[in-house]
Amino acid sequence: EEWMVEKALMVRTGLGARQIESYRQGAWIEGVHFKRVSPSGESTLRGTTWYNYPEINKFIR
Protein backbone atom coordinates (compact mmCIF):
# COMPACT_ATOMS: atom_id res chain seq x y z
CA GLU A 1 0.00 0.00 0.00
CA GLU A 2 1.58 3.22 -1.11
CA TRP A 3 -1.19 5.77 -0.56
CA MET A 4 -3.64 5.53 2.35
CA VAL A 5 -6.13 7.68 4.23
CA GLU A 6 -5.49 9.00 7.74
CA LYS A 7 -7.17 6.14 9.62
CA ALA A 8 -5.00 3.54 7.89
CA LEU A 9 -1.90 5.65 8.53
CA MET A 10 -2.80 5.83 12.21
CA VAL A 11 -3.04 2.04 12.37
CA ARG A 12 0.27 1.51 10.51
CA THR A 13 2.31 4.13 12.40
CA GLY A 14 0.65 4.50 15.78
CA LEU A 15 0.48 8.27 15.26
CA GLY A 16 -2.61 10.12 16.46
CA ALA A 17 -4.70 12.53 14.40
CA ARG A 18 -3.11 15.59 16.02
CA GLN A 19 0.39 14.25 15.44
CA ILE A 20 -0.38 13.61 11.78
CA GLU A 21 -1.81 17.12 11.43
CA SER A 22 1.31 18.58 13.06
CA TYR A 23 3.63 16.71 10.68
CA ARG A 24 1.45 17.69 7.71
CA GLN A 25 1.55 21.37 8.65
CA GLY A 26 5.24 21.37 9.49
CA ALA A 27 7.66 18.76 8.23
CA TRP A 28 5.92 16.73 5.53
CA ILE A 29 5.93 17.98 1.95
CA GLU A 30 2.68 18.13 -0.01
CA GLY A 31 3.00 15.99 -3.13
CA VAL A 32 5.63 13.78 -1.48
CA HIS A 33 4.32 12.74 1.94
CA PHE A 34 0.67 13.63 1.38
CA LYS A 35 -1.72 14.92 -1.26
CA ARG A 36 -5.29 16.15 -1.38
CA VAL A 37 -7.48 14.70 -4.11
CA SER A 38 -11.10 15.52 -4.93
CA PRO A 39 -13.55 12.86 -6.15
CA SER A 40 -13.00 14.21 -9.67
CA GLY A 41 -9.28 13.40 -9.37
CA GLU A 42 -8.06 17.00 -9.27
CA SER A 43 -5.73 18.38 -6.59
CA THR A 44 -7.65 20.53 -4.15
CA LEU A 45 -7.52 21.88 -0.61
CA ARG A 46 -10.92 20.36 0.22
CA GLY A 47 -10.43 16.83 -1.09
CA THR A 48 -9.57 13.65 0.75
CA THR A 49 -6.04 13.72 2.14
CA TRP A 50 -3.97 10.71 1.11
CA TYR A 51 -0.68 9.80 2.79
CA ASN A 52 2.32 8.13 1.16
CA TYR A 53 3.30 5.50 3.72
CA PRO A 54 6.69 4.53 2.18
CA GLU A 55 7.82 8.18 2.04
CA ILE A 56 6.60 8.85 5.59
CA ASN A 57 8.41 5.72 6.77
CA LYS A 58 11.64 6.98 5.12
CA PHE A 59 11.17 10.35 6.83
CA ILE A 60 10.77 8.71 10.24
CA ARG A 61 13.89 6.58 9.81
Rank of each mutant, 00 (worst) to 15 (best):
A27N: 07
S43V: 11
S40E: 14
G41A: 09
S43W: 04
V32P: 01
S38R: 09
W28Q: 01
I60Q: 04
E1F: 08
S22T: 12
F59S: 04
E30H: 05
N57Q: 15
T13A: 04
E30G: 03
R24F: 04
W28E: 00
I60T: 04
Y51M: 01
W3S: 01
V37W: 07
R46W: 13
I60H: 03
N52Q: 02
I20F: 03
S40T: 13
G31P: 02
L45P: 10
T44S: 13
E21P: 01
K35H: 04
E55T: 05
N57K: 14
G41T: 09
E2V: 13
T48N: 07
H33P: 01
E6D: 05
R18D: 15
G14R: 05
Q25C: 08
W28Y: 00
A27D: 09
E55A: 10
S38V: 14
Y53R: 02
W3N: 00
V37R: 06
Y23S: 03
E42K: 06
W28R: 01
M4Q: 03
R24Y: 04
P54S: 11
A8Q: 13
T48Y: 07
N57I: 15
G26C: 13
L45K: 09
G16L: 13
E42N: 11
R12Y: 08
G26E: 11
I20G: 01
I20S: 00
S38Y: 14
G31K: 03
T49P: 05
N57P: 00
W28C: 02
I60R: 03
R61L: 14
G31S: 04
Y53I: 05
M10L: 05
V11Q: 14
T48S: 07
W50H: 06
I60S: 03
S40D: 14
Q25E: 14
T44A: 12
P54Q: 10
G26N: 14
R18Q: 14
I29L: 07
S40W: 10
S43L: 09
L15Y: 03
Q25Y: 08
L45C: 11
L9S: 01
A17P: 11
A17Y: 08
K58D: 08
V5P: 13
P54V: 14
G16E: 12
M4P: 01
L15A: 00
G14Q: 05
Y51E: 00
P39M: 12
N52I: 02
W3T: 01
L9D: 00
R12D: 02
M4K: 00
G16P: 06
K7M: 09
E1H: 08
P39F: 11
G26Y: 13
T44H: 12
L45R: 07
R61I: 14
E55V: 06
R36G: 06
M10R: 07
E2W: 09
A27F: 10
Q19Y: 04
S22H: 14
T13E: 02
G16H: 11
R12G: 03
F59C: 04
M4E: 03
S43P: 12
G41K: 08
K7D: 14
S22P: 01
R24H: 04
Y53S: 02
S40Y: 10
P54E: 12
R46L: 14
Y53V: 06
G41L: 08
R24A: 06
V11E: 15
W50C: 11
K35C: 08
L45F: 07
I56D: 00
L45E: 14
Q25R: 12
E30W: 04
G31F: 05
S40I: 12
M10A: 06
T44R: 07
V11R: 13
Y23R: 02
R18A: 15
T49Y: 15
W50F: 12
E21L: 08
W3G: 01
E6Q: 09
G16T: 15
R36E: 13
I29F: 05
L15G: 01
G14P: 02
I56E: 00
S40K: 09
V11T: 09
S43E: 12
Y53N: 02
F34M: 03
T13I: 05
I29N: 04
S43N: 12
H33V: 01
F59N: 03
K7W: 12
K58Y: 06
K7G: 10
N57A: 15
E42Y: 06
H33Q: 03
E42C: 08
H33C: 02
V11N: 11
T49F: 15
V5S: 15
F59Q: 04
I56P: 01
Q19F: 04
R24M: 15
T49M: 14
Q19G: 03
A17T: 08
Y23F: 11
G41F: 08
T13H: 02
G14T: 03
R12Q: 07
S22M: 15
V37P: 06
S22E: 15
W28I: 00
W28M: 02
M4S: 02
Y51T: 00
K35M: 10
R12A: 14
T48V: 14
M4A: 02
H33M: 03
L9N: 00
E2G: 08
E2M: 09
L45T: 13
K35T: 08
Q25D: 11
Q19S: 05
E1C: 10
P54W: 09
N57D: 15
H33R: 01
G26T: 14
E42G: 11
V37D: 12
Y23G: 03
V32S: 03
Q19C: 09
W50E: 05
S43Y: 05
T44N: 13
I29R: 06
P54L: 10
R12P: 02
E21C: 08
V11G: 07
S43Q: 10
Q25G: 08
V37Q: 08
V32F: 07
E30T: 03
E6S: 05
M4F: 05
G47A: 13
I20W: 02
L15K: 00
V5T: 15
K7I: 09
I29H: 05
M4N: 02
S38F: 14
S43F: 06
K58C: 06
T49C: 08
A27K: 08
G16Q: 12
G14N: 05
E55P: 04
I29S: 05
G26F: 13
A8V: 12
G26S: 14
N57C: 15
T48C: 08
E2Y: 08
V32E: 04
R12M: 12
G47L: 10
I20N: 01
P54A: 11
R61D: 08
V32M: 05
A17W: 10
G31L: 04
S38H: 12
S40F: 11
L15I: 04
R36I: 15
E21W: 10
K35V: 11
W3D: 00
V37N: 07
G47H: 10
F34T: 02
E1Q: 09
E55N: 06
I29M: 06
R24C: 12
V32H: 05
